[in-house]
Amino acid sequence: MQDNNRLSIHSHSHLGRCIFLRFLLFSAVWLVLTGSEAESWIIGFPAIGCAVFLSLKLSPSSHVSLSFVGICSFIPFFLRQSSLSGIDVMRRALSRRLAVNPGLVSYTTFLPEGAPRIFFVNTISLLPGTLSADLQSNTVTVHTIDKNIPIWANIQNLELRIAILWRVTPQKGKAL
């Protein structure tokens, strides 16, 4: 709802900014794909145009404001956590008696609808021992491979970091 209001107020500048950002993003991808061939932009510009058009058609409004500091701190965190999760799975799969003790946990997040929440849900699956199994409005059902690991703390930690990433202020009471 909030998102829609913002769209109607700053509709023009918002749309322009949106197009510009996506244009930049797709140009970067094109650059990565083709390398430094200048000629490729003959096809590149129409292609980027099509991609931007389609992306606008699919998701007309998206308010992206990531914090640079957040990104810088999130990437190492993510890499470390996901390698830990790999090692964790390896350990459990190779242990003689399967070291699994699965269970389900429901978690209510304060992250706003849209990109942050989706990012949150997707990242849970890459964390050690957790897997997001369902998402109903703001409640994430998490499947854990072992009930004994501190899931709650892990997820809360992740949530806070994503909140910093998207410059969201945690709303008291909602998280718990």
């Binding site: 129409p46 099509c50 991609a51 931007v52 992306s55």
Partner: peptide, 8 residues
């Protein structure tokens, strides 16, 4: 959109 870009 990425697929469209990639197809081109």
């Amino acid at each position: 959109p990425l697929m469209v870009l990639f197809s081109f």
